[in-house]
Nucleic acid binder design. Structure first.
Lengths: 200, 200
DNA sequence: GAATCAACCTAACGTTTGTTAGAGATCAGT
DNA sequence: ACTGATCTCTAACAAACGTTAGGTTGATTC
């Protein structure tokens, strides 16, 4: 990735568009608003992108690749001796950091994917499936290793976990709370449940 | 609530708008599209509603009141002898039934609340707070009764639970799965966690 | 049967939408 | 100083937007 001035404005457009899409929805944001926020005119956007859909598509794809990289890295940094609960917590933290801390693309993806034109949604599905596979393999490892309870389906668990994480976007403010602490609490509840055990 | 013919088309407009808003976002749906789906002309909508925002506002408020009624009823139908896990499961089932099975208003609310004009969001906040209080009281009851683990904060738990439930909207298809079963699995994971206990 | 009313339609308003063509600006290489 | 490429602007296009005023319809009331 070269770092020309053209590339910089291109990135700025994508970053701005992701922010606005996440706040107001796809149709709620016009090309002129994006251009305004980039201190440009609407027509100039078309030098860098062929259409509004093309911006959206790139925003969505970036969203998945960022969160996928974050989770992969979090898992890679773990020692080989890490237990299943430790791996789970690391993966949660990776996902939450991308979602809440540094990736407007990931948060935009989560927020607007459901209301995006069919064509663009299709173009994002491959990336999404790859990310889901990452999780499925992690959870399948837990399952195969006997760490998971036998009556917990790994695939359903993936949907539940990722869903629960994505929902934090609606209320968690990273400026007022610690993301890693949040991940730890989620991992704890998921691992051990919320109710006191008998005999405690 | 009288059942005049005017009231019926009014309800039809609200129902249709909720469906479309949930699928395409608020700005993604025009008055003409709503009117089309209702077999009317756009201008006629203004006989029943003062503006598009007014439709949206009513959709959002209906969404909360429906899910609140569903959870209240699910809890009321429980015998007084019900345990904390049983109450939790009943509340989850009520929320999920409204969200996934019969209330397009609730699902629309969950999907678009984050990207709605400021004024309309404010107008929905009172209802939302009332619903949150319902959950807070339930969980505070668990806490006071000693059912909850001491290191689990009831308020954080509420955010986690409702978020996890709302996220099912993105993948669960009520035509292909059993909502009560889903609620049972969620309640089970939340209650006891996903990992095998030592000594099992 | 004339008058009244609720419910809907028609036709238009001013604005905003995504997009395009072509004209300017900026700057590096010669 | 000139050329060419790169980047942005201006100005406009047709279409769609939310909204409104006034007319048409069919049923109800006197």
């Amino acid at each position: 990735m070269e770092d020309t001035s053209s590339r910089q404005t291109r990135d700025r457009i994508l970053h701005t568009a992701a922010e606005l899409f996440g706040q107001q929805g796809y149709s709620g944001v016009s090309m002129r608003r994006i251009a305004d926020a980039c201190e440009m005119k609407a027509g100039s956007l078309y030098y860098h992108f062929g259409s509004k859909d093309e911006i959206l598509s790139e925003v969505l794809n970036l969203g998945i690749s960022k969160v996928m990289a974050a989770v992969s890295q979090a898992l890679d940094e773990l020692p080989d001796t890490a237990t299943a609960p430790e791996k789970l917590r690391a993966a949660l933290a990776g996902h939450l950091r991308a979602l809440l801390e540094y990736s407007v693309f990931t948060s935009a993806n989560v927020r607007i994917f459901g209301q995006v034109p069919e064509v663009v949604r299709q173009a994002n599905l491959d990336a999404r499936r790859a990310y889901e596979t990452l999780w499925d393999e992690l959870l399948a490892g837990f399952h195969a290793g006997g760490a998971l309870r036998a009556d917990v389906d790994p695939r359903s668990l993936r949907l539940m976990v990722i869903g629960a994480l994505n929902a934090t976007l609606e209320w968690f403010d990273p400026a007022r709370g610690d993301v890693d602490g949040l991940a730890a609490r989620y991992a704890d509840v998921l691992s051990h449940g919320v109710f006191r055990r008998e005999g405690e």
